[in-house]
Simulated assay, not measured.
Amino acid sequence: MPSELALDRFVCFGDSLTELSWGENGLGASLAFLYQRRLDVLNRGLSGYNSDWALPCLKKWLSPKGSDEPKTQLMTIWLGANDAVLPGEPQHVPLARYLANLRAIVALVRDPASAHHSPETSLVLVTPTPYHPEGWLDERVRRGLPRTHDRAPERTKEYADAVKRLGQELGVPVADAHTAVMDVVREVGEDRLGEFFTDGLHLNQNAYAAVVEEVKRVILSSYPEKSWEAIPMLFPHWREIPNGALGPQYATADKAVAEASAKRVDPF
C-alpha cells in the first residue's frame, strides 16, 4: 500500500515538447516548481512519437481503475507536432485519426467503462506549437537529412485549430500554445520567429514561458480548486511546528524547532 504521505500526481503526457520541458522555463520544470509539496509532476513525454504510438504507451502508464496508487489530479495532453508532418513522412497521422486518438485518450480517463477510469483526473489539452521552417531545415541538414520540408506551418496550425474544436466538443479545456507562442513572437516581429526555438522545432525558454502562462491560465480558470495556490502543502509550514502541528510522534522535532525559534534562529 502507498504511504499516506505520498503526493498525488500531475502527469505531463506528450511528445518531445513535453519530454524536453524539464529545462529552464519549460512546462514540466515550471509546474514542478509551482506544485512542490503539493503534487508530484511526472514527465511522460515521448520524443518523436505521434498520437498513434503514444496512445498504447499511455495505457501502460495509467493506473488501473480502483488502484490504491496516488491519484492523478491533473494531466496535460500535448500531442500533434509529429502527427502534423506532411503525408508520406513516417510520423504523419491524418487529422481525423489524430482527433480520434485524442478522443480515445480522454475516454481512457473519463469513460466509466474504461479500465483506467479516473474521475479525479482533470484534463488539459494543449495545441501543437508553431515552428520556424528555415531553422528546422538547418536542423535536418545537421542530422544528415535532406534539406527538404517535412512539415508546413499551415498544416500545424490546422491541427492546433482542430484541438480547440475538439476541446469544445468534449468539454475539455484547451491551452492554446500555438497562439500563445505566436503572440509573443508578434511582439518582437514575426521575422524573429527563429529566436524562440532551439532548432526550429523545439521551444527555447522564451517560447516555453508563453506556454506555461497559457497552461496556468487554463488551470486557474477551469480548475481553480486544483491550482498551486489551492492545494495544501504536504506537512505544515515550519513556523507552525512549535504549536504541535506535526503531532506527538514528532515531539523531538517540535522541541528542536521551538528552541531555535526562541533564539530567533531559522532552523532551515
Score class of each variant (00 low, 15 high):
N25W: 00
R38M: 10
H116S: 11
V172K: 07
A115D: 13
H178P: 10
L193V: 07
K216S: 04
G189S: 02
M75G: 13
A104K: 11
L125M: 08
G88C: 14
D254N: 12
E187K: 14
A253H: 14
E259R: 15
P133R: 03
D150C: 13
P173G: 04
V218Q: 04
N101F: 01
F268W: 15
R165L: 14
A251G: 12
S21H: 04
S67P: 14
H237W: 10
L220S: 08
R140T: 01
M1C: 13
L246P: 09
P64A: 00
G247M: 09
D161A: 09
G200V: 01
E214F: 11
H178C: 05
D15V: 05
A245R: 13
A180H: 06
A177C: 02
D199W: 00
S122Y: 13
T127H: 09
A107M: 02
D15R: 02
R44Y: 10
A253V: 15
H178R: 06
S122L: 15
E195A: 11
R37A: 12
C12P: 04
D150H: 11
T252L: 14
L79F: 02
P242K: 11
D266H: 14
G247D: 12
G200A: 00
A209L: 08
C57T: 11
P87E: 11
S221I: 05
V257W: 13
L99H: 08
D68L: 15
N82A: 04
L58E: 03
A207D: 08
P56A: 04
S221A: 10
M182R: 07
V181S: 04
G66I: 05
